[in-house]
Write a protein that binds this DNA or RNA. Structure first.
Length: 375
RNA sequence: GCGUCAUUGGUGAAGUGGUUAACACGCUAGUUUGUGGCACUAGUAUGCGUGAGUUCGAUUCUCACAUGGCGCC
């Protein structure tokens, strides 16, 4: 079956929504944060650890799995869930984001038919189309597939964006036409950059096609925070109430709050895991770099308000030692902490939506996060 | 005791009679938003064993001393 979104309650003071998402792999409360597992693994973490953190959906990536190990192998393994031993829901990104960063010459490489680019593994020339992306995702057998879209850089001219939005709409149509998997849902993607009328146009046209959910793309590509928040506002008001809304690629704690307030239900981001591998940790009192000398003999946990495995069992001094010694367990402990930090924020925000206290939550959180002692 | 070669930062080291002593690692700090995992950016020797001399100028040349390696007695 397809996913089903049930809106339970809208917050009184904001556009935030609390709802339930029913999938073939369980029911989950929204809004939620989805960790990224590009290559059929959330880097350094086991499925058991992901579940312990109360994650719901995780992401995987069409482009990466297409190149290696190949979608046919994943299919042979029994699908992505079986292959990677994860029985929660999986969303596959279409590969659009990767392909556009690999397409050297935007004008020449991006054609109506699809996108030409070179493999990051061996430089081989490749060509990805909306149909192929959907076909690959079909074989991967994810719960949610994404339309193949163009994610333009920021900023681009109005002219470029208009053409890009139209092309993305045609690609969405083409992808939808070949998508015939009753057990896989398909999301459309709203583009349009910072241009209000293009966001409206993109949203309305995408909604006309009737997807199972709608995402907002083209954000967090270098624009200011205010610009990003406007992009969300421009798009969300044209999205239907009875379908989930997914803001792609956003995972800064404050952006999560601002997104939820604007009516976003789902987020994904590499930030918690990438920061972890580079030794950074979220805390209520600001982000810290565990490699800093001041933590060398700090035998307290990373964040005393955190309930994660790392904070319950390990000290900053130990994690610092692991990270500075380049031990992979350090990246794992910080990944656990950072993901749990964001997931717990979402839990708290869901409670706030129920109690109509989200704005107070936002003010308190930002005050502590930006002015806390860890800054 | 004699001869010989060496002595550059936290480490491995490059180098020159003349403005800011290469590079790497380490260290210090920063960056990171639909992931080309373990990356990137910046800073890090007022100093070239010690002392004296030659020279307009020496880390670079000369001498003495110290320390270390090697060879000989």
């Amino acid at each position: 079956m397809k996913i089903k979104y049930e809106l339970i309650k809208k917050e009184n003071n904001t556009n935030a929504r609390y709802g339930i998402l029913k999938t073939n792999h369980g029911e989950y409360e929204l809004p939620m944060f989805m960790p990224v597992g590009t290559q059929a693994t959330v880097k350094t973490l086991s499925p058991e650890e992901i579940k312990d953190m109360k994650c719901g959906i995780i992401l995987s990536n069409t482009y990466h799995l297409w190149l290696r190990p190949g979608e046919d192998l994943v299919k042979k393994a029994g699908g992505l869930h079986k292959f990677m031993n994860y029985d929660g829901p999986i969303l596959t990104d279409s590969g659009g984001f990767q392909v556009f960063s690999l397409a050297k010459n935007k004008k020449k490489d991006i054609t109506e038919e699809g996108v030409h680019f070179k493999s990051h593994l061996d430089g081989k020339r490749l060509f990805l189309t909306p149909e192929l992306s959907i076909e690959i995702q079909n074989k991967l057998d994810s719960d949610i597939a994404m339309s193949f879209d163009e994610c333009p850089p920021y900023p681009v001219t109005y002219e470029y964006m208009k053409n890009s939005v139209d092309r993305t709409l045609r690609w969405a149509e083409r992808g939808k036409k070949v998508h015939n998997n009753e057990n896989q849902s398909l999301f459309g993607i709203v583009q349009g950059g910072e241009y209000e009328d293009l966001r409206k146009y993109s949203a309305e046209k995408t909604v006309e096609m009737d997807f199972d959910g709608y995402s907002i793309g083209g954000t967090s590509v270098g624009e200011s925070k205010d610009t990003m928040y406007k992009m969300i506002d421009y798009a969300v008001k044209y999205l239907p109430k009875d379908k989930p809304r997914y803001l792609m690629g956003v995972g800064d704690p404050i952006d999560l709050i601002e997104g939820v307030i604007r009516g976003i239900d789902m987020f994904d981001c590499v930030l918690p895991t990438r920061l972890a591998r580079h030794g950074n940790a979220f805390t209520r009192l600001g982000r810290i770099n565990i490699k800093n000398l001041k933590y060398k003999e700090d035998f307290t946990c990373i964040d005393e308000h955190c309930d994660c495995y790392t904070c319950k069992n390990y000290t900053k001094a130990y994690v610092r030692h692991l990270i500075t010694s380049d031990e992979s367990f350090g990246a794992r402990l910080l990944s656990i902490h950072n993901i749990r930090f964001l997931v717990k924020m979402m839990e708290e925000m869901r409670e706030c939506i129920k109690n109509d206290t989200l704005l107070e939550y936002k003010n308190k959180f930002i005050k502590e996060y930006q002015n806390g002692k860890n800054n």
